[in-house]
Simulated scan of single mutants.
Amino acid sequence: MDPHRVVVVGYDDAELLDIACVTTTLDAVRQINPDLGYDLALATPGGGPITCSTGLVLNGQAVLERVRGPIGTLVVSGGLGHADAARDERLVGHVRRLARESERVASLCTGASVLAAAGLLDGRRATTHWHFAEQLAASYPAVRVDPRPIWVQDGNVYTAAGVTSALDLALSFIEADFGPDMARWVSRAMVTYLHRPGNQAQMSMFTAAPAADHDTVRKVADHIAGRLDADLSTEALARLARVSPRHLTRLFRAHLHQTPGRYVRKARVTSAAQLLSTTDLPVARIAARCGFASAEALRQAFAKEYGIAPSQYRSVASRT
């Protein structure tokens, strides 16, 4: 098995960023140290060019049907053409064949549907772009779809949420293959300040869509974001909004699909994550600033949201 041979599977209407994020990140190893690096190839049906969803054309470097193992990492790109690709029995069959000859198998974004069609995700936990998660789960009930993380590893199969999360997955491969120092150098070369752990959430209050276009909900959400260390109980927020706690809960469920209490907890944990990765403040001070009663309260909430302790999250950030 050649651990550093990487084959990326592309098809028409693939997402260019999915392909570029992983290939450019992996190729940075060679640029940093010419004695190291990956053997990268874009394999396409028939070896011909593919038209990405942006309209840009990429030339294939290998004929998918003729590619043989051993392969270190097989990567299936995502994109708007994923549904057609998953219905293409020949393409899916070759992905299934190559997976048997690969040390690692990965999908980016909606490329998970191709792995699922090949049966490679049956019984496994997997992720995809949050917008397509319900569709993937409905189409492939044998797959345990988790829309929250930016990437997931289950055995030797990796699935990523797509676009920039492909960069994080590629960095994790580099760390496994060449060590944390190389991953740190590559992350600096890519001008990404944080090599995010796979269980970091895809969405947060800072990256999700703006609060619903409802005056009361928007007013309360703005209040929460600016006063995380204040009394943000549902009763206190209801007084601010001049409605009953029950009515405020109904409004939040209708417009933000969660209770006020859940929204507050997520806002506080998200803010704590930012402070952990961008400051040297002690955990106790971060807890107080974000409205937690103690460092232990922060630890419990953080572990529930991200699956790791605040100290471990900070340790990951400090490596980059």
Score class of each variant (00 low, 15 high):
residue 256 L to F: 00
residue 19 I to E: 02
residue 123 G to W: 11
residue 181 D to E: 14
residue 15 E to G: 10
residue 227 R to H: 15
residue 205 M to I: 13
residue 244 S to L: 06
residue 173 F to G: 11
residue 249 T to Q: 08
residue 71 I to D: 10
residue 118 A to F: 05
residue 274 Q to V: 12
residue 201 A to H: 08
residue 299 R to E: 15
residue 269 V to E: 11
residue 230 A to P: 01
residue 63 V to A: 03
residue 288 A to V: 07
residue 104 R to N: 13
residue 12 D to Q: 13
residue 304 K to L: 12
residue 24 T to F: 00
residue 183 A to C: 01
residue 196 R to D: 01
residue 40 L to S: 12
residue 180 P to M: 02
residue 160 A to S: 15
residue 177 D to E: 14
residue 87 R to D: 07
residue 108 L to N: 08
residue 41 A to V: 15
residue 134 E to F: 02
residue 256 L to M: 15
residue 57 V to K: 03
residue 285 R to A: 14
residue 175 E to Y: 03
residue 224 I to E: 02
residue 237 L to M: 14
residue 311 S to M: 04
residue 236 A to W: 01
residue 4 H to P: 01
residue 269 V to N: 07
residue 188 R to Q: 15
residue 9 V to S: 12
residue 33 N to P: 03
residue 125 R to W: 07
residue 80 L to P: 00
residue 96 R to T: 05
residue 20 A to H: 02
residue 252 F to Y: 11
residue 180 P to I: 04
residue 257 H to E: 14
residue 34 P to I: 04
residue 94 H to T: 09
residue 111 G to C: 04
residue 251 L to M: 13
residue 119 G to E: 08
residue 219 K to L: 10
residue 148 R to I: 10
residue 212 A to L: 01
residue 18 D to W: 06
residue 29 V to S: 06
residue 237 L to Y: 08
residue 232 L to T: 01
residue 132 F to G: 04
residue 101 E to W: 10
residue 119 G to L: 05
residue 289 R to V: 03
residue 64 L to F: 02
residue 129 H to E: 04
residue 93 G to E: 05
residue 20 A to I: 08
residue 14 A to G: 14
residue 298 L to F: 07
residue 212 A to S: 11
residue 301 A to N: 10
residue 28 A to F: 13
residue 92 V to S: 10
residue 14 A to R: 05
residue 81 G to W: 06
residue 171 L to T: 08
residue 277 S to C: 13
residue 110 T to W: 03
residue 95 V to F: 06
residue 76 V to Q: 00
residue 287 A to S: 05
residue 10 G to M: 15
residue 118 A to Y: 04
residue 168 D to V: 10
residue 177 D to L: 14
residue 171 L to Q: 12
residue 189 A to I: 03
residue 133 A to N: 12
residue 246 R to A: 14
residue 13 D to Q: 15
residue 250 R to K: 12
residue 202 Q to E: 06
residue 1 M to I: 07
residue 190 M to S: 13
residue 179 G to T: 04
residue 229 D to F: 01
residue 210 P to G: 03
residue 290 C to Y: 08
residue 112 A to Y: 01
residue 314 R to V: 01
residue 193 Y to C: 06
residue 237 L to A: 10
residue 218 R to V: 00
residue 194 L to H: 15
residue 18 D to Q: 11
residue 164 T to G: 12
residue 296 E to S: 11
residue 183 A to I: 03
residue 212 A to T: 05
residue 104 R to F: 05
residue 284 A to T: 12
residue 307 G to V: 04
residue 273 A to F: 14
residue 307 G to N: 04
residue 74 L to T: 09
residue 224 I to P: 01
